[in-house]
Design a protein around this nucleic acid. Structure first.
Lengths: 220, 220
DNA sequence: ACCGTCAGGCGAGACGCCGCGTCTTGTCAA
DNA sequence: TTGACAAGACGCGGCGTCTCGCCTGACGGT
């Protein structure tokens, strides 16, 4: 027995029968992502099946079950991958990520700009179906919900937190205000309107949200 | 062709083979509601099956398929029924519904009070599972989503709209403000925090939302 | 640097199970 | 008398597990 300090097999003990990631087929992984995203968009999340994904990807079912515990996890990873690709396009291949909201000194204008970009993203048909599916799954499945929020939403929200803190130092936001709660005033209504289809997403709408959130609805 | 305006059978033409509602068993209907709500709470929405509801309710599967098109519709109706019962308890059996937010002249206080009541309702364990399930289904299923919003959410939102309009007439809200959007400033963040489990629901939190929404986060 | 070996990931698909939605039967109440 | 009812059989399709050869990539000996 060679120099393994523990157990008979190399890093098998993490989960039962953990597969060897070094020998994993990159080709299959990508095909599965593509098939999952395509199927969710084409036939909807509930009618997307693991059998269907496997067939579409030209992959054995076992290959999916080997690497993911559920179809929700497959879709979550596929969507994360899609988002990464998309944001790599925006930033250069050099790597500098879009990791801050611009600070022109005009908070209202900066927020409106970012929210307009968010609207554009939400209206991108490639994102809609998987995004809705994951949001829905997250409501009912705590594990997916937590991961969805942490990996997909939280990074964007942190951008707002930083921008609002900067505004606070500049005196553009009241000192006592909690940025974490403040950002919800414009983000949550937008998200809700989109998810619940209670109205059209327009620049006018998001601009209004920013104005209300900054100055309140009471007379000044 | 045979100008029957009313066809051969009484109100059969609405859908194919529409059943006779007059002969419907009230007993089965109630049992199905109870079983559906109980199962969703006990085993979760995805593992709640029509077979399971039928068995639990002591009812034939056909009785469910006769009256509802899908398990989501069953649950929606069951939950509407539950809500009606609950709000009948609050109002007297005489019938006067709680159909307005109190107007003490102090808008902030009135809103805080109602939001605190909403928090209590959201934390009621009897409501949580079915509410989440329906919200999730509504994200992915447009028909359910529309009905969910219209029958469950919209009535409550109208209460806010009315109260905000009254406030507007009293000069407590700026004239140009759209009440429909204004109410989202405090309702949407609360809903989102609850649904996404991104933080605890406390009176302190909802009070803060009202303050931010009324006065904004910018210096006055 | 090369090449042989072999563990294990791979595509394919069979398996038993279960819930789906439909259909059939006999019972019972309006 | 009619039609909703409880019970449950039916074929179907997706589930998650399994078995089969094939092929690949990591590793060791020369």
């Amino acid at each position: 027995m060679a120099a393994q300090k523990s157990a008979q097999s190399p890093q098998r003990s993490l989960r039962r029968n953990a597969p060897d990631a070094a020998r994993r087929s990159e080709r299959s992984r990508r095909a599965i992502y593509d098939a999952a995203l395509a199927l969710v968009s084409e036939v909807g999340y509930p009618r997307t099946t693991i059998e269907g994904i496997a067939a579409r990807a030209g992959v054995g079912k076992q290959t999916i079950y080997r690497w993911w515990p559920s179809k929700a996890d497959v879709l979550l990873e596929a969507f994360l991958d899609l988002s990464d690709q998309a944001s790599e396009l925006v930033a250069g291949p050099g790597g500098e990520r879009q990791d801050d909201i611009p600070d022109t000194g005009d908070l209202a204008a900066d927020l409106k700009l970012v929210l307009r970009a968010t609207v554009d993203e939400l209206l991108n048909p490639k994102f809609e179906a998987p995004w809705r599916a994951l949001a829905a799954e997250g409501l009912v499945n705590e594990q997916i919900g937590t991961e969805f929020v942490a990996k997909l939403l939280e990074p964007s929200l942190q951008l707002y937190v930083r921008r609002l803190r900067a505004a606070q130092e500049q005196g553009a936001v009241r000192p006592g205000v909690d940025p974490r709660i403040a950002l919800e005033l414009f983000v949550a209504p937008l998200a809700q309107r989109w998810l619940q289809r209670t109205g059209p997403l327009s620049y006018e709408y998001t601009d209004t949200l920013v104005d209300y959130a900054l100055h309140g609805i009471a007379p000044r």
